[in-house]
């Protein structure tokens, strides 16, 4: 086993232990809600790190995939009465199909054109959710989404949801670490570093770009489904492009070169606005200023900074 994977697994084990204990120390449900949101964002940003940091592609449309996961699973379970676990899987399958189709058409684009195409996807999904009121409930949203259940246990409370969402996120992180410490992860990074040189080693650029895109869309869809069945209410506002932008901001803030960057970025930036709400007037100033400051002085994000401080090489 490579030393990098061993180290990451050790840190992950530490994180899992800490996560498991937090509810014993904090029982304020509001904090748990924020932690749950952080977990969902970590899941999504983890996928985005694969796409942006590893495969070198950009997307400002991942809130659209959240929406597919959230609305897909919510609507299916509401209209057909199917079990939320099953509808989550179906929504995931749907997202996989959509993102694969998009991957093959859109990832031919470069730079601005790719940014715009993914933005356009997000906007089209958003406006569809707003306008197709009969199906989606329109701007007021979609209430009464059934929760996940396991036997007689329904994951309704923040605490129950906490012990559902975090394990899913940690397991996904575990698997993603497997991936980045393998030939697949290396191929992705080679691709981001030099597409032509990578192709001349037999790495199929199209396959890996689409793989990263589809995987990141799947993570976002999963996060969206978990979100919908946890809050039991969704509205289009959650899935606008600003959320997409925020997700990429988390990715860069934490450092796109490492999955730990995703954990740091989403783990710190998700609670920040909630925390800053006490300085309501200055919220945007602080958030914007902080984002600028970190990116100006530490372009590799927080994980890059930590790597420098500890002189270690993160994956």
């Amino acid at each position: 086993m490579s030393s990098g994977l061993k180290r990451d697994r050790r840190i992950l084990a530490g994180l899992a232990t800490a996560i498991g204990m937090i509810p014993f120390l904090i029982n304020n449900p509001y904090y748990l809600t924020v932690l749950n949101l952080s977990a969902l964002n970590i899941l999504t940003v983890c996928g985005l790190t694969l796409l942006i940091g590893y495969a070198g592609q950009i997307s400002l449309g991942h809130a659209g995939f959240w929406a597919l996961g959230a609305y897909g699973s919510a609507l299916l379970s509401l209209k057909t009465g199917l079990n939320p676990w099953l509808t989550t899987a179906l929504a995931l399958g749907f997202t996989l199909a959509v993102s694969a189709g998009m991957g093959f058409t859109v990832l031919r684009l470069k730079g601005n054109y790719l940014v715009m195409a993914t933005l356009a996807f997000n906007l089209a999904v958003y406006f569809f959710l707003v306008e197709a009121e009969e199906l989606t409930g329109g701007p007021p949203g979609l209430p009464g989404i059934p929760p996940y259940t396991l036997g007689s246990l329904a994951f309704v409370t923040d605490l129950a949801a906490y012990y559902l969402i975090w394990p899913v996120v940690l397991i996904t992180l575990f698997l993603t670490f497997n991936l980045v410490h393998s030939g697949e992860g290396r191929a992705l990074r080679a691709l981001a570093s030099g597409e032509i040189a990578a192709a001349c080693l037999g790495i199929n650029p199209r396959r890996y770009k689409v793989l990263a895109f589809v995987l990141s869309a799947a993570y976002a869809s999963l996060a969206g489904s978990l979100y919908a069945h946890y809050f039991s209410f969704i509205s289009p506002k959650t899935f606008d492009i600003f959320f997409s932008v925020e997700l990429v901001a988390m990715c860069l803030f934490g450092g796109k070169g490492s999955l730990w960057g995703a954990v740091l970025g989403a783990g710190l930036l998700t609670p920040l606005p909630h925390f800053l709400s006490i300085f309501d007037e200055y919220r945007d100033l602080i958030y914007g200023g902080l984002l600028m400051g970190v990116l100006i002085f530490f372009p590799d994000g927080l994980s890059g900074l930590m790597r420098k401080l500890y002189g270690r090489k993160a994956p």
């Binding site: 080679a190 570093s193 030099g194």
Partner: peptide, 10 residues
């Protein structure tokens, strides 16, 4: 065209 960001071994 070395892959920057990867080690020699990688």
């Amino acid at each position: 065209q070395i892959f920057a960001g990867l080690t020699v071994l990688e």
